[in-house]
Every structure is written in structure tokens, then in C-alpha cells.
Amino acid sequence: MSTETIEAPVAKESEALLSKRRKKFITDPLNDDNPVTVQVLGICSALAVTTQMKPTMVMAMSVIFVLIFSNLIISLMRNAIPGRVRIIVQLAVVATLVTLVNEVLKAYAFDIYKQLSVFIGLIITNCIVMGRLEAFALGNKPYDSVLDGLGSGLGYSWIILAVAFFRELWGSGKVFGYDLMGAIGFENFSANGLMVSPVGAFIVLGFIIWVQRAKTGYVEH
């Protein structure tokens, strides 16, 4: 890809901001190449924070932020990083960004910060971030890397939001704290405690994977 653009710089300039090739960076990770359900990355946080929609939303936004900016920074530095120390450099960049997110949340959203506890810090070891840096940002241009980070982040986000939706709905009858079950007529909805416990997360994600793979036809051997 890179040699092609070097030979034809004019073609590069005329490439649309969202050409077909670039759109694929965003749409691919949503289903066919989803980071959570297909590449099996970042499962830890996908399950741990998903008891309610609100903290999940914050977590998703934090991960998207870290993914986009770490991809951008590493991509800008990709020619300056010696291969042997790249893991340390990547960890340092990611840890700095996560510290930033952590401090911002601590200052402006302390309740959610308390709820997410260590899991904001664990974005550092979230395999999606390291995986994208290794597989994409080290070998691609900054703008493409940003799009790739955005795509992977969105793919991760919709999975954890889906898990959180079902867990909150069945676990407490609510969505974003709004009493949905009560509003549609199930006044005496009895919450399912299993959904709020860790076990619920595994089972809900198992079903989501099943449905998604039945649709895309992906089979693991």
C-alpha cells in the first residue's frame, strides 16, 4: 500500500477523505472483523463494566479516545521507533493517555470513576489497543490509523453496549436508569440477580457471539 502512494503522490491527494478503502477501516471491525467477538481481544473490560449502561458508555468513549490517539501518536512516530523497544514505547504512550482519561474522569465524573474503579487503568493492558498498534499503526499513515482506531473502537463499543443493555434490562428492569420494564407494563418485573453477577456477562456475550456468527456465517475450527 505504501509503495503505491509513494509512486503516485497525485493519486494520494485526490483520494477522497472517506474513500471506499477508508470506509472499510471503519465498517470492517463492526461485524466481520469485530475485535471482541472475532479477534477475541479486550474481553476483560468488555465484561467487567457492563452491569449498567451509563458506566459502559463512559468506558466505550474512553476506549475510543485512547485507541484513536494512541494509533495517531504511534503512527506519527512509526519511523522513529526501533523495533526492539517498541512494546515499551507503546505501553508508555498508552499509559499516558489512560492517565489523562483517568484524571479527567476523576475531576468531572467522580461517581462513574468510582464505579469503574480499576478498569479505567486496565485500558492499558486492553489487548485491542496494543493489538491495533502492533498490527496497524506501526505500518500505516496517521489518517488511516485514526480511522482504524475509530472503527475498532466502535466495534468494541457496540458489543459492550449490547451486553450492558441486556444485563441492565434483565438484571434491574432499567435502561440508562430509566424504568423501562415498568413503562411498558411489567409493573412487578422481578429482577434476575444472575444477570448482574459476572456469570450473566459470560452468558449474554455467548449468545451475542452465537447470533452474530449465525448471521455472518463465520465458523471457528
Binding site: 453477577s197 459470560f202 457471539i209 456468527r213
Partner: peptide, 23 residues
């Protein structure tokens, strides 16, 4: 195992069941 559940899917269910045991 059903096709769509092979690999990750069934592993998730098993982990869930093991979690119940640990509970």
C-alpha cells in the same frame, strides 16, 4: 457443537457455568 457456537461462543458459556460453581 453448533457451528456458530464453536470456539469462543461455547467457551463463554462454559466459563459462565464454571463461574456459577465458583459462586
Amino acid at each position: 457443537v453448533p457451528d456458530g457456537l464453536k470456539g469462543l461462543g461455547i467457551t463463554m458459556f462454559i466459563t459462565g457455568l464454571m463461574g456459577i460453581a465458583f459462586m
